[in-house]
Design a protein around this nucleic acid. Structure first.
Ligand SMILES: NC(=O)c1ccc[n+]([C@@H]2O[C@H](COP(=O)([O-])OP(=O)(O)OC[C@H]3O[C@@H](n4cnc5c(N)ncnc54)[C@H](O)[C@@H]3O)[C@@H](O)[C@H]2O)c1
Ligand SMILES: NC(=O)c1ccc[n+]([C@@H]2O[C@H](COP(=O)([O-])OP(=O)(O)OC[C@H]3O[C@@H](n4cnc5c(N)ncnc54)[C@H](O)[C@@H]3O)[C@@H](O)[C@H]2O)c1
Lengths: 208, 208
DNA sequence: CGTCGCTTGTGAAAAACGTCACAAAATCTA
DNA sequence: TAGATTTTGTGACGTTTTTCACAAGCGACG
């Protein structure tokens, strides 16, 4: 029941949630920390310590009720509700993300698409019309958008971020390979695939 | 000059490399740990500690020679050469990745594309013809492929991984939302965007 | 009801990681 | 050449995160 939670704990909670969904699909009703650990590349003690930050959800001698723990993890991770998301940048990566069904199944609902290209503005993607960047502030306000998926070229990313922050955005999933400057109350997660490839080549070179 | 390097150090080295390229573009010849720290959201002591794992590259009173350190980081990260990469899964995310120029500019060269869809097999993407999964082993062998970018549905991912591992693959950038089982000499980096969105909604919910 | 087997929750110990502080090395100035 | 100035490299220190170990809680069963 502590205050500051390690980022690594959060990543593991997401894994536990996914494992619980699998286990529920197998028709099981309870699960032990040891089994969650096995499915998640961690240890039973780590599972229990992670969960203990948020309360005590298990029964000694028995384990955790799968459905109960699943619901608690949804609450902890904040995915027990719908999040309104805007996609900024209707390019190659943006179009792949827009059609990716995993977001919506976790409650991340894309309610707006923005692009600067005059050829794209006005086009329909599914039920959504692509909007120009000038409308960013009004879209955030009128649609209750809290999250941005930012998939624009690096040189446009900071400027858009500044406007989004001004309009009250709360979190940004950033695909542009730059470090966005945001005030401390705005959360940013970076997706940097080149860095991940570099981690692979480092690991391989190291052992080699 | 130590043995086991923290993953967080490797991530920061990638950032330093990117900063050095920027600094070189500005025509500067030397840089201090303090300036690298400012550009990388870390501290000067951290920069020096990170680098000290691999040797001592600076000059006291002066700092680091930009070009020299850049080249050393390229070597350390293993990107001072070309890596042959195969793209497995020519779907939505696969097509975005294939056209992403940042990979090739770091020496990650896509030399093969594989897909199981009979409609896609045989089609040309740029200069490459899409291959069927049966050819995975022979492609790895004949083209010297060391890295996979795995962009297939989750239920196909483990099976392809097993075959790739059998054929000698060394690293996998995995987009499928499952934890791949691989022997310890194979490196895996997972890209899991849903988990990153969950980290955002957790952070926002927490402060809220 | 008492005991037995199982599994949690959690302080305490250990390990990993980051920060601090300063001697040493280099340049610059005069 | 001496002294002032700058900035590295690194051991010592502090904090965070993981692992360990076990008392306590729960169900089952005779
Ligand atoms: N393609 C990939 O696989 C990939 C992977 C990881 C990261 N990224 C990053 O994602 C970003 C987009 O990459 P992409 O490959 O989709 O590029 P892209 O050129 O295909 O798409 C970018 C889109 O952003 C739009 N845009 C440009 N300026 C804008 C602005 N000011 N406001 C709104 N929209 C604007 C463009 O019109 C275009 O439609 C880049 O930063 C890239 O580095 C791409
Ligand atoms: N679309 C996204 O934005 C996105 C983002 C992150 C992760 N992912 C993940 O990436 C993977 C692919 O997603 P997608 O959206 O591109 O799906 P997709 O259906 O558009 O593409 C998948 C491709 O893989 C091919 N395929 C299927 N089985 C195969 C096999 N055994 N061997 C070779 N190829 C095979 C299919 O023919 C198809 O072309 C999924 O695991 C998904 O969860 C997708």
């Amino acid at each position: 029941m502590s205050r500051r939670i390690p980022a690594s704990t959060i990543r593991r909670l997401s894994h536990y949630l996914r494992s619980l969904e699998d286990i529920e699909g197998e028709g099981r009703e309870t699960v032990s920390s040891e089994e969650l650990a096995d499915r998640g590349q961690t240890t039973a003690a780590q599972v229990r310590k992670d969960l203990s930050h948020f309360g005590s959800f298990g029964k000694r001698g028995l384990g955790y009720r799968v459905d109960e723990l699943r619901v608690r993890l949804l609450e902890i991770l904040g995915v027990d509700r719908v999040w309104k998301v805007a996609l900024i940048g209707a390019g190659r990566i943006g179009s792949a993300l827009f059609e990716y069904p995993a977001f919506e199944s976790r409650g991340y609902e894309c309610v707006a698409i923005v692009d600067a290209d005059p050829e794209k503005i006005g086009a329909m993607w599914g039920a959504l019309r692509i909007r120009p960047p000038e409308e960013i502030e009004s879209l955030i306000g009128s649609l209750g958008i809290e999250l941005f998926i930012l998939a624009v070229p690096a040189q446009a990313a900071q400027q858009i971020t500044d406007r989004a922050v001004g309009a009250g955005i709360k979190g940004i999933l950033n695909f542009a390979p730059i470090r966005l400057k945001v005030p401390s109350h705005v959360a940013v997660e970076d997706v940097n695939l080149v860095m991940q490839l570099e981690a692979l080549s480092f690991a391989i070179t190291q052992r080699g």
